[in-house]
Simulated assay, not measured.
Amino acid sequence: MKAYIFPGQGSQFVGMGKDLFHSSHLAKKKFKLSDDILGFKITKIMFEGPQEILKNTLYTQLAIYIYSVIKTKILNNFNPDMVAGHSLGEFSALASIGVFSFEEGLILVNKRAYMMQKICQSISGGMAVILGLEDHIIEEVCKKDKGIIVPANYNSPGQLVISGEKKALQRVCLSLKKKGAKKILILPVNGAFHSPIMSTVQKKLEKIIQKISFKNSKCPIYQNVNAQPVTKYHEIKKNLIEQLTSPVKWKQSIKNMIDDGAITFNEIGPGNILQGLMKKIYKNA
């Protein structure tokens, strides 16, 4: 069985999509449509940068979504047996299999990114990658801290991202270092994604999502919040709403896809950031 996976933030690069724009009439049409819908030239930011602008949450999420979905539109044989997307990538995955339209997804991602950017400016938060510790150790340390700090991304065996208030993040990172973490990397983001800090955004996004007409999925999508295959539109919608404050269960999703018969995994997006995680997950599947 053939699986397609879609990356989230971190996979962007200046120049992304430029080759698609010049080589495909359909791609060019979709890129221009994106500019028209958004009311500004996201394509200029994607194609020319600068990097400092592109890595801004507001533009990053739009750029990756646009690139990923357009890529599926121009593939000759895009007929997945199952799909999954990492955080933002879940929106790309859903649009690619027709749960909502490219245009509806673009508007949704635009509003999601804008609201996430706003909350990041008002609350001091951060994220860190913890390498070389068992999940339960990280979970316990986060739970004991008095601040807002939680596991955010279960990326692969031995790699878990935590998210929360900056002071809590500093305390927990120090504790985890003493517990034997091989490496701790503070991510270059100014927000605490997939944490309770995003609850205000979640409530606003829920109202927007409820207005969009979702369809049943053509194939199972393994969603971030529970790592389980879902096809019914009402379940997909519910899980998508919960995603903002829930951890991304990526390694669990991939393991379940393998157990359910996935043989090949095709990454659809700029770069190949998910392939590195795949190798680690495969070793422990």
Rank of each mutant, 00 (worst) to 15 (best):
F102W: 08
R112P: 00
K28N: 00
Q210W: 05
C120H: 09
Y233D: 06
K143H: 15
N284W: 04
S156G: 08
N153Q: 02
S253K: 06
K232P: 03
M278E: 05
L174I: 07
M46E: 05
N266P: 04
D36I: 07
I241V: 14
F21H: 05
K207E: 14
N224C: 12
D259P: 08
E267A: 13
K29P: 03
K232A: 13
G10M: 06
F13H: 15
G15Q: 03
V230M: 09
L205S: 02
A181Q: 08
L205P: 00
V109K: 03
H136T: 15
N76W: 09
I208T: 08
K238S: 07
M82L: 10
K30G: 10
Y65A: 08
N155H: 06
L38I: 01
Q170G: 07
M116E: 02
M116C: 01
V109C: 02
I258S: 07
Q223E: 11
V69S: 13
I5M: 13
L187I: 05
H136G: 06
V225R: 01
Q210L: 11
K211F: 00
G125W: 14
K143Y: 13
I212D: 01
I53M: 11
V248D: 09
K166W: 12
P80T: 02
V172L: 07
N155R: 04
N79F: 06
K182P: 01
N284M: 04
Q275T: 11
K55R: 07
V172R: 01
V161I: 10
F6Q: 06
V189K: 03
I263L: 10
N266T: 15
G125Q: 14
I254E: 04
G180Q: 12
E52W: 01
V129S: 15
V14I: 09
I212L: 12
S122R: 07
Q121V: 07
K143E: 15
N224S: 15
L160W: 13
E52A: 12
P247R: 08
V83H: 06
